[in-house]
Design a protein around this nucleic acid. Structure first.
Lengths: 348, 348
DNA sequence: GCACGTCAATGAAACGTTTCCTTGACGTGA
DNA sequence: TCACGTCAAGGAAACGTTTCATTGACGTGC
């Protein structure tokens, strides 16, 4: 028995259910049943327990609950970087849905490092996450796929399509980029370039597909020199468009398919003293104050990251609850092209 | 004893330390010692255990570890909205530091709802977080303060100064806004307006202080009609600056001290057909692609959120480790004014 | 009046670790 | 040779819950 002396240092540890029981003069089990709102409990007992709980300031220990129940009521989230525009919106809305159901969100950034990515998955396993929201960095990393296979919790992918056996919420980049390509063609552009990430990732792959379909439907030739794939980042955008613009036979329109790309692209165009849209038409990725308030405003491929987050969370919850969904589920979120002043007919 | 039959459905639960022990033919305690790298363990035993661990694919159960050790190795983070520009940078770098030390980050958004804020603190208590990073919504909410007092873990405030007994990492808005005010005065502005959040929050309070100091040092009168306090958001920025601009005696310069304010401010200025900086000079908050690529580029108060996050995490870790720091610690991060084309002498 | 069914409360067991006490083996020094 | 010290391994207890089998009280129907 622990002696609690007045002069003991620091606050004494939070009371346990056991202390509540003895304070209320009832059994351990009864306290538990009251706390969990079980049916078979007398008003009398309920009152006693509630009084003791309030008096002692008892807070249930979620760790012990997890321990006993085997469910941590925690959902992991591994993304490259919460700091990437838009991702915060995804995380926020996923968090909202999860919180409402009593789940907490364990957020981690892989920073695009495959090794770290696997470590983080390990962390999620060790912490017995109940599900994982994952936007991984390469869809062709066999090691990652193997790790994922060993995982004990459902996985929901974010804008990824591999591994196929996992649920996924994806953005329909293909349709919107097809659309953008067609619109540019309709304005009279013949040389339309596409800059996007490496095709080991779904968003890049699907943009490339859409681009090719768009060219095809507009009867424009496909020129592989007009596709640049690398990363989704500003620096790559800068390098890439600079190279395109410095070519003697430069494109008259560019689709920049990378969320973080815009500043790099704009910088390059400005440095060269070119004007949007007179010299070059531009379609960016993801709406932002920058796109909206730029002069001229920039056309973008845009989608609702918040909705994506909500649905990802819902997918995860469904799996956690063991609803029997035999096949992997995919949700394809439409994305749209917001046409703005950055697109015009090509220079004659 | 549980029978594991071949045809049993689903993957069998992850092995426990006990199974590892029996597989390796050693005792429970020895396995634990090997796993935790204790000194007193024979190479022979170590080898056996490691082999068994590898064979069974054993992963330690962090929940059980927390249960036993009383430390969850989890740090909570409550902010208004991860989606607010800059905050993601704070979270990211805090996460980095914590992860490196084996801590996970439990992220939540209060959405500026005091009730929800308190619930979230409750969540952190229940989950036995080891520390809390908190950017709360009102520094004058007595209920919140009381709740915080009952908390069993150290609290590190983010850009807040109340309650005083907690550690805090803050941005030196006062100096930079004083500086901005002085610079505008130097350009010849006599009527400089300040728009910022409610003064129940430190960032607004300190900006107002800096503004007043700046006016004073420039020998400009303080006109209360030129201070608008409300929220840090675009809509308030819009309303607020609209009102200022529509006044017959309108200001010639505006400092918009709110992270999310810029789009609203710009919209209003544009709607009125005014030109920056000829009709009105503008200083915004927090650097962004928008500020940088706007025509003209917009001057801003800017600071390093990543650094703030790192230091907040470090503060938390220090407290967790019980380093005996008797008094609350404050870190004041300098912020700077980036002067750009949006500031010029006032119209004559 | 007795047996039985119902229902609420009790108390023990279990979840997977870590820690600490105990045991046993071995070596050393008197 | 014996006593003792050292060291590694074993095993039990404990962390705070939930759950489940058990107990006991009470009422009902025969």
């Amino acid at each position: 028995m622990k002696t609690i002396s007045e002069d003991e240092e620091g606050p004494r540890p939070t009371p346990t259910i056991r202390e509540v029981a003895s304070a209320a003069g009832v059994s351990l089990g009864s306290v538990s049943r009251v706390l969990n709102g079980h049916a078979t409990v007398t008003p009398d007992i309920r009152a006693k327990v509630e009084k003791a709980v309030a008096q002692l300031g008892f807070k249930p220990n979620a760790v012990a609950q997890s321990m006993r129940s085997g469910a941590s009521r925690t959902v992991g989230c591994i993304i490259r970087d919460i700091n990437i525009p838009g991702l915060a919106g995804f995380v926020r809305s996923a968090h909202d849905v999860l919180l409402q159901e009593g789940y907490a969100l364990l957020l981690t950034n892989s920073e695009g490092d495959p090794k770290r990515e696997r470590e983080l998955i390990s962390v999620m396993m060790a912490r017995r996450a109940d599900a994982l929201l994952l936007g991984h960095w390469s869809e062709q990393d066999q090691g990652l796929e193997n790790t994922l296979r060993e995982v004990r919790f459902p996985v929901v992918l974010m804008d990824r399509e591999e591994p196929r056996w996992a649920d996924s919420v994806m953005v329909d980049h293909k349709s919107s980029i097809r659309h953008a390509t067609q619109m540019l063609a309709q304005l009279g552009h013949k040389r339309i370039a596409l800059i996007t990430g490496r095709d080991t990732l779904y968003p890049a792959r699907s943009r490339i597909e859409g681009y090719r379909e768009g060219l095809l439907s507009a009867n424009l030739p496909f020129d592989p020199r007009l596709i640049h794939t690398g990363t989704f980042e500003a620096e790559f955008g800068y390098e890439s468009i600079s190279q395109l613009l410095d070519d003697s036979d430069r494109p008259t329109a560019v689709i920049a398919g990378g969320i973080e790309m815009m500043p790099g692209v704009l910088r390059s165009i400005r440095t060269r003293g070119l004007s949007i849209p007179h010299d070059i038409s531009l379609v960016g990725t993801l709406n932002s104050p920058l796109a909206e308030f730029h002069q001229p405003p920039i056309s973008v491929e845009d989608w609702d990251y918040a909705k994506l987050g909500r649905i990802a969370a819902k997918f995860a919850l469904d799996r956690i609850r063991g609803e029997d969904i035999p096949n992997p589920r995919r949700f394809i979120l439409p994305s749209e092209i917001v046409m703005r002043g950055s697109c015009a007919p090509p220079p004659r």
